[in-house]
Design a protein around this nucleic acid. Sequence first.
DNA 1: TCAAAAGTGTTAAAAATACACCCATGG
DNA 2: CCATGGGTGTATTTTTAACACTTTTGA
Lengths: 213, 213
Amino acid sequence: MEFSNKYEKQMISVDICMFSIIDNKLNVLLAKRAEDPYKNMWSLIGGGVYNDETCENAVKRELAEKLDIHDISPILSSVFSEPKRDIRFRNISISYFCLVNSSIAHKINTKKVLEVKWSEVYKITKLAFDHNDILNKAINQLKEKAFDIDFMKPYLPKYFTLSTLQSIFESILQTNLDKRNFRRKLNSLNCLIDTGEKNELDKHKKSVIYQLK
Amino acid sequence: MEFSNKYEKQMISVDICMFSIIDNKLNVLLAKRAEDPYKNMWSLIGGGVYNDETCENAVKRELAEKLDIHDISPILSSVFSEPKRDIRFRNISISYFCLVNSSIAHKINTKKVLEVKWSEVYKITKLAFDHNDILNKAINQLKEKAFDIDFMKPYLPKYFTLSTLQSIFESILQTNLDKRNFRRKLNSLNCLIDTGEKNELDKHKKSVIYQLK
DNA sequence: TCAAAAGTGTTAAAAATACACCCATGG
DNA sequence: CCATGGGTGTATTTTTAACACTTTTGA
């Protein structure tokens, strides 16, 4: 197979929907574009894939270089390959998503290399390129993984009340959950540890603080 | 973003797990490699993605050019990007799967451009490149779609007895299904039409011939 | 004493699983 | 008449969903 001009200057990049639960809402990290096209618009984090790394490693490298975030396990989301999706050159995007916990989320230096911000996913309007499509796809896939507690555990608060956990899930799934059914579901997943502590910040009845097994 | 040598000569290709139900078994189309590397080994069908097409269109074009198969709706499976997966050059594979019905499967000219053959998926041993990994991933995804009758319909026989349909599903899922539960499941999916015909080829009791809504 | 959030049980419906016998037919 | 494969029904368990009242406590 030859590298004829049919294949020239193909650029492979990764785009990353990095989610975090902030104030019990599902947020995604956006970066402001410093250059045209779409200068000053918000976009997902991403970058080119080097020849000597997998796409997954490209995600990890980008997050490390640009945000000093490490030990992420990105999940493949989809592939976006419309020829004109990037007006500069042929650019195929392999999209990933991941969750980071809120302590990491708050540590991100929002001005170091990139201007970045956390944004509530269900309030986002127009992003650069086809990043709205990329984000929507990833949101749907994240929803499917929400009750996979082994996956979710690293990103949920270490200690929480069941009301807090429920509001996190409601924020991800964009639906109202029944309090009793939610507790039963979590119990049936056999993942809760009652710490014996109570939340002294509660104004009314003190709620039990749990952690995950 | 510049095309430094970090990104040079990246090749994007698609690899396609084209499945078909042949003699009630799940088969996949393999092509014999005419060139090194892996000369004479069997591999999946695939090829490079042109700059002016999406990956999905590359799949359709490859199937049209190499096999004269049209009107396929390939489903994205995964991405394989180990730097050394192709020893010749950096080659990222976007993998897809699709099903074709058996009348198309039998029409494939197995010597025209490529030497190809249908092969029972659960009897396949070593394929070229990382194509076993690609195939295994696609098989698992196909299994998840098996009871999505709207998806499956174009690929199933137009007329069938429930025993035949059950053996097809058993062949895909690699499991034994209970005859009564299988019939109940299909009925609950509300997708069967009783043609009123009976299978005269049956040696014993004549079975009812159904079609899908 | 009241407003606010925590916590708790039951019932119903739907889906999944397990299981065994009779029927029609051709040889 | 018997071997073969077609066809059928019931019971159990599990999962999902819907739904309302009591408790604790600070203001």
